[in-house]
Amino acid sequence: MIEFSTYNVIFFSISSFTLISAISVGLVNSLMRSLFFLILTFIGVAGLFILLSADFIAIAQLLIYAGSISILLLFAVMLTPESSTNNGNSKYFLPGILIGIIFTYLMVALVTIFQFNQLSGIHLKKLDFDNTIASIGELLLGKYIIAFELASILLLFALIGAISIVRSNESDFLISLNNKDKK
């Protein structure tokens, strides 16, 4: 068991890494660099998940966010060339900062005032998970089976929708369709 002080140091280093790279996403001017910092943020959040003993979720985070959604973002940047240099601020830049700070202040105040251990009357206890992936599998195919099936339908619609949006006005696509009709 790693002692309390080591855990503290690891927690603070990972969370500060995450937050600094998250702020850099907003402050960096080049869109590619901001994407790079976004990937670093995802990796940092995966580290926090591991500290919370959620290993499968951390891997899923790495795989889906850092591995595939970032690729999607990269390709989207490459398909829209003028955006690549330009990660400019909108006219709501200062209001954005203000709203962010106010929201953060309010929520932090709420969290620190609110006594979570009085929520249920029992003192909060830590749960150390063991072999999460098997339990998640049992839950997914047992209790949450309908959501599991619906997820596939959601993914299907996302695929169909995105394909039809991207290809909607491509000339070669239409030509190929026309040729197909003639046959």
């Binding site: 790079f36 891997i59 899923a60 790495l62 850092a66 591995g67 690729i71 990269l74 072999n131 992936i133």
Partner: peptide, 18 residues
């Protein structure tokens, strides 16, 4: 020695792409 070893390798090596 973790019990999600294969997924770990798969996820880590997918970071090569970006």
């Amino acid at each position: 020695n973790i019990n999600i070893g294969i997924l770990y390798i798969f996820a880590v090596s997918s970071l090569t792409v970006p």
